[in-house]
Structure formats: structure tokens, C-alpha cells
């Protein structure tokens, strides 16, 4: 699905990531961990084309991301659901419209999708908050809403950047369950997190690969978790 081959990323003359190779195969579950500032978010951005690798090759669904024009990149992103660390929303739109945004921009609109939207909002427990504006939501509600928006197009891959970063333990477990549920539906999941307890909790329920970024390189972790 998404494959990185000897990928490097440099910025301002300094190397942030180097020699990264990883294959996110269909239905796999990955954790990406490492200390703050190690490059987890950068690696995720390379995966969905928000950044371009300065070395190596990033393949998405068989296409070299560097060769995609802006239209093709938009179509590529419709096949990927991204949960951002800061849960970016359009603050002037109610929550339901924010969650439905991928449908809107892809031209599907809400016609005939209202049931799916309602079901999805119930799945993340936000039915009663459908009309609320994003600034009115709590951290946990924003994270769940971001997850709902990421999956509304039924993407093949879900990339989540610190999805439990701003929520309490109970809420982080709830979000983890949602991601595990998606993986059981066949979705490929990559979660960037520095929360090792979350990884431990997940490993008891799902077969997950744990990748660690250390000294700008990617290593397979697990024995210590």
C-alpha cells in the first residue's frame, strides 16, 4: 500500500531522517514510536505526501509520490485517512460538516450519505455534538471527530499522529479500540505515538509491528515493550 525505500528527508542542510525503509502492507498494524522531535510526524507526512522525500522513494498504491501532480495527489489522499496531532478542522463549520468534509470535497456530497454519517458519528460517540463548532469541543471529542473524518471515505490506510496525545487514559483506550476495530475491517493502520502504555495495551489485542525512530534511522522494536 505505502512503501518507503531508503527514504531520507533533509531540511535546511540537516538530515532529519535517513535510510528509512518500511512497507505498510494491506491489513497491517504499525506503531511508530520515538522521543519527541525524532521525526515521527515527518515520517507520517512523507507517507501521505505532505512532504517530499529528499532521498529514496515513497510509493503509494504503486505510484511514486514524487511524480504525482497536485490533482493526482488529491486523489491519492482520498485513499488515506489522516488523524492529525492537532486535529485540524474548519472552525466555522459544524462538526458533522467537518466530518463529512472528505465526502464534500470529493464531490460525493451528503446526499445519500446521511445514514453513513449518522452511523459514523454514533460509532465515535459524537451524535449529540453534530451541530457543535470545533472550538466548542473537548480534546477527546476533537480526536474522535478527527478519526471519524479520517475514515468516512473508507480509506485503505489510516495514519494517526499522536491520536491520544491530548486525552485521558480512558479516552485513549476508546480511541485505540476504534483503530483496532478499523484494522479488523481490513484497514492498514499506522499510529505515531510516544505513549508506550498504549502500544502495550494494543499488542495484547492485535498483532502490531512496532517501529522506533532513533538517531534519524528506523528500527524494529518490540522486545522491550
Amino acid at each position: 500500500m505505502i512503501e518507503l525505500e531508503n527514504v531520507g528527508y533533509s531540511y535546511g542542510g540537516g538530515e532529519l531522517l535517513g535510510d528509512i525503509s518500511v512497507d505498510l502492507s494491506p491489513g497491517s498494524f504499525h506503531f511508530l514510536t520515538g522521543p519527541s522531535g525524532s521525526g515521527k510526524t515527518t515520517l507520517l507526512k512523507l507517507c501521505y505526501g505532505a512532504l517530499q522525500a529528499t532521498a529514496g522513494q515513497v510509493m503509494g498504491f504503486g505510484q511514486d509520490l514524487r511524480k504525482l501532480d497536485r490533482d493526482q495527489m488529491a486523489l491519492f489522499r482520498r485513499r488515506i485517512g489522516v488523524v492529525h496531532q492537532d486535529c485540524r478542522f474548519l472552525d466555522h463549520l459544524p462538526l458533522a460538516e467537518n466530518i463529512a468534509l472528505p465526502l464534500t470535497v470529493s464531490g460525493h456530497g451528503l446526499a445519500g450519505q446521511q445514514d453513513n454519517l449518522n452511523e459514523l458519528m454514533a460509532w465515535v460517540g459524537l451524535t449529540k455534538r453534530a451541530g457543535a463548532l470545533p472550538p466548542e469541543l473537548s480534546g477527546g471529542e476533537r480526536q474522535r471527530a478527527a478519526l471519524a473524518r479520517a475514515v468516512i471515505m473508507s480509506p485503505d490506510v489510516v495514519l494517526a499522529d499522536e491520536p491520544t496525545g491530548n486525552v485521558d487514559w480512558e479516552m485513549s483506550q476508546r480511541l485505540l479500540q476504534l483503530l483496532i476495530e478499523l484494522n479488523r475491517m481490513g484497514k492498514t493502520i499506522l499510529i505515531a505515538t510516544h505513549d508506550l502504555s498504549l502500544i502495550r495495551a494494543a499488542k495484547s489485542q492485535v498483532q502490531a509491528r512496532v517501529l522506533r525512530i532513533s538517531n534519524r534511522r528506523l528500527q524494529l522494536a518490540g522486545a522491550d515493550l
Binding site: A74, L75, R77, R78, V82, L101, P102, V105, S106
Partner: peptide, 12 residues
């Protein structure tokens, strides 16, 4: 930026 991240084309 948000629109692009959710797959909006430039012409949209």
C-alpha cells in the same frame, strides 16, 4: 491546507 489534506483538488 485542511482541504488539501482531505483530498480537495485545486479547482475545487
Amino acid at each position: 491546507e485542511v482541504l488539501r489534506l482531505v483530498g480537495a483538488r485545486d479547482r475545487y
